[in-house]
């Protein structure tokens, strides 16, 4: 059965690119436009992996990760941050919030799939 990935990004173009690439690689994709949307989508259906942007309106990525980790069903779901900030500071914050890893923007579809496949096969 195809695994489902939730991609959270306020940028429609990046979301489209991520979703398209993931679908092309055989995953099912749920899209969300900000942290809050991501949280409600995540609640609707427990996904196999969450990819979230960091800087978003309404609810940022860190808050989303914390909220997800607060849900029983998301304690073990891998969460990766997509971030333009490759600084250790952001990584540490992400890790503190409960992320399992990070992927620095910009990335190309190939890299994305490579990382996703490493995480959920």
């Amino acid at each position: 059965m195809a695994k489902t990935i939730l991609t959270v990004d306020d940028s429609g173009s990046l979301r489209a690119m991520v979703a398209f690439s993931l679908k092309a690689a055989g995953y099912q994709v749920v899209e969300a436009v900000d942290g809050q949307d991501g949280l409600s989508k995540a609640k609707e259906k427990t996904v196999d992996l969450v990819l979230t942007d960091q800087n978003m309106p309404i609810m940022d990525g860190l808050t989303l990760i914390r909220q997800l980790r607060g849900l029983g069903s998301y304690q073990k779901v891998p969460i990766l941050m997509l971030t333009t900030e490759s600084s250790d500071e952001m990584k540490a914050k992400g890790k503190a919030a409960g992320a399992n890893g990070w992927l620095v923007k910009p990335f190309d579809p190939k890299r994305l799939i490579e990382v996703v496949q490493k995480v959920i096969g």
Binding site: V77, K118, V119, G121
Partner: peptide, 28 residues
């Protein structure tokens, strides 16, 4: 992995098992 990935622009936090085939639940 961690070392490789840092150079390539991504990384996983410990303890995280990258596993090509494994399902999530067995991974963690």
């Amino acid at each position: 992995l961690e070392q490789d990935k840092v150079e390539e622009g991504y990384g996983f936090f410990a303890p995280f098992t990258p596993h090509p085939d494994a399902v999530v639940t067995t991974m963690i």
